[in-house]
Design a protein around this nucleic acid. Sequence first.
DNA 1: AGATCATAGAAG
DNA 2: CATCGCTTCTATGATCT
Length: 828
Amino acid sequence: MNKEKVPDRTVSLETAEPDMASSSSIGYLGYAEYFHNKELQQLESDVQYREKYQKEKGVSHPTLFQGLTIYVNGRTDPTRFELHKLIILHGGTFKHYLSGKTAVTHIIASELNASKKSSFANYKIVGPGWITESIARGKLLPWQDFRIVNVSVLQGKITDFATIRNCMDPNFIHSYFKSSRLHHLSNWKFQLRDQFVQDLLSSRGEISPNQKYVFFHVDFDCFFAQVSAKIDGTYDIHTVPIAISHGINNSDISSCNYVARSFGVHNGMWVSSALKLCPALKILDYEFDEYEAISNLFYQALKSVGIFKMVLPLSIDEAIGCMPVTSDTTQELLTQKCIQVRAAVFDLTQGYSVSIGCASSVLLARLALRKGKPNGFSISWFSTPLERRAFVDQFKLKDLPGIGYSTDQKIQETFGEIHSISALRGLLESPNNVSKLIKAIGSKNAKRLQTYLDGQDDDESISMVKDPASYFQKKSLSVEINYAIRFKTIDDVDTFLERLSLYLWEKLKDSNLLTRQITLKLMKRAQGAPVDPPKFMGMGKCDAISKASTLGSNTQKYGSIASECKTLFRILSVPPAEVRGIGLQFHRLTAATQASGQKLEQRRITTDIFKKANRSDDEVVRRVDEDTTPRTPKSTTYASPVKNYWDRHLKRSVTPFRYDFPDELDPEFMSNLPKDVQEEITSHHSVAKRAKRTLRTELFEEPKKQIKQTQDLHYIHDGRLVPQLSFQGLSSAKQICRTLIDWVDATIDVGPHEKDLELFVNHLNKLADQRRSHIILQLIKTLKNKIDDHYDGNSEGLEQWEYFLIRRLIPVLNKTKSDVNFNLVFDL
DNA sequence: AGATCATAGAAG
DNA sequence: CATCGCTTCTATGATCT
Ligand SMILES: Nc1ccn([C@H]2C[C@H](O)[C@@H](COP(=O)(O)OP(=O)(O)OP(=O)(O)O)O2)c(=O)n1
């Protein structure tokens, strides 16, 4: 699933640092040279280094440390220098930084310090003797024999943590998501669904809608806890209370084992509360790669049993196998099948336990699963409604899907301390209580609950089974980060929004979709909430605010999306420093078709879209003109002048065709404002004005002409710029520069095509992520010089080029500047 | 009255 | 040192047309 593209680093070594490659004619790379580019080339170069060394010295070393990733901390004897060499020569991976605890399998340290934090007991920390002794004996000795307790890992400064702490780091989103369990959970789920839909379509799916099934709801027991405990290998999961989390205090427990649960610990609880209930609780690290690998085997095992017509993916560790009902479907047969399924998973995953709930409806299967857990199964195969109700009655309201904390509370507020399903069933015999319930939890919710009381599936579950392809089809796209978000200025916000837009735009593009509606969602520090919340870098108590914007046409343009987001942020008028979370959503997606080239069309044309698309240009213009008449301001006594201004001019601006701010700022209005406020408005105005312009011009562009341009730049346009750059050796940077020059020359009259801009900015961002700022600088300089050459004319294209340079390229350059310092710190 | 919105809630 | 609080879908009441 982890399909990250890894550029060919062997080649890019020479591209990026030509001097270094040519000067190293002294046999295998010297250590200092090796280090020079360590961050980029490390993995490949370790192998390279070993091969070259062994070839030239005519020796070979046993690969004792194969599969291990080792970090050396602080001063050691032998030196870090020597240890690095020994580790890579013997097949190990050497890590220069502790980037996230999970990546490193072992830490080597010599000096013993008084340990302040027991949490580091979770590391495998060993003395250097482990390396030297293992090599001397020619075999990998057990690390436990060289274990060092009471060592302070952070004796030296480990600066890599800085990325996650500073949301303005160009790598922040990527680096944060790498450790976010919720991101992984959601991402995995999407990928599983996507895979399911693809498989179904390619198998010319004959899912008969009226087929009756037995449902096998299969779920790992405390998934993360089980896997991490096995990887760690220190504790017995059946006797020691274990929980998985990143931290040791106000950190979420994602999963805890059943021993811990017997103390009252549960998933989602903070470690601090859990430790109060269970002081002996052991905290283990996440092992995301392993979760993914085990999950793959799990799904493979379910399919291999061969009794399921479909395996519906619910999540990384949870699926529903659908077995067609036949005349010989009996309790005995189902028992046998449950045992068989559990065995299949156990064998293929080499020892992981799942539990199964088996029943005639999705709901009953889920409840049965609850009964079967842990490490077991339960079958609910009933013939009468009465039996079904009796079975349902033994559960609590919260056990029902769709009844969460809030609904449960509302029911209790309405009927008193009611927890069990049976109690509610009794109450609902009175119609009066039914209407009370509807009032409390809503009509749909109440109706579903009543369906569940009979052990029946609700409409949603039924549609999942009957038409899985459309049920699992994605209908919206979003990204959201509510951790470590701390902005100082509006420029920070703009930069971040550009990165978020880019992130989501890439997903949109990958799925070959267009969006019609963009929503910006903010978490704003709640009134009275502390500036520094209890959780380190957390969001604390917040108000959620969102604002949607319906675009005039379906789009896939990064530029339009990014500027729309900036506009939306200004409409919400939250001070940057109060923002604790930020998210972006695309709604009303339609499929993009390839057929007509760059001019993207929607496959479905609803009557609504049809009408809008056919509105004449005149009408559009008139509407814009009409709406520019200023509205009388509302009496917003406490609003700032800026907010007041935007309230008047943007409040009701839903579609870009109805943006009703003036094209020029009213001088009288401006002159009455303090200077800093004037500046703020001017800055907001230019962004908003730009947003309006790009969206409006989108409709009027001439697609054919633009396509031609992009074809001239085909190698930029195929979306593979980064690898190609690296592959093309020394000449490539020059080649790119020449192409840039041609690009400017060819488009100076009409302006650059948005698609190409996106790709170019995207490429620069990738360079920035790799911290190759000198290349970025060179490219931007070339572009700027060329644009300056054309400064005689006063064309529309020139203006667009300048805008592009200032608003989008210079920011990329600026953000890399801070990285230079980073590199220096690392390269010590 | 029907469309569109902002928001809340649930799930893993 | 801390810590990695996402993403998707549904329902509902308010507001807009
Ligand atoms: N609030 C939560 C709930 C779950 N998870 C993750 C960790 C779990 O291991 C995994 C699966 O969730 P389950 O609800 O299936 O819980 P477990 O598998 O941990 O326990 P069990 O299914 O045995 O109750 O999702 C999480 O990160 N945060």
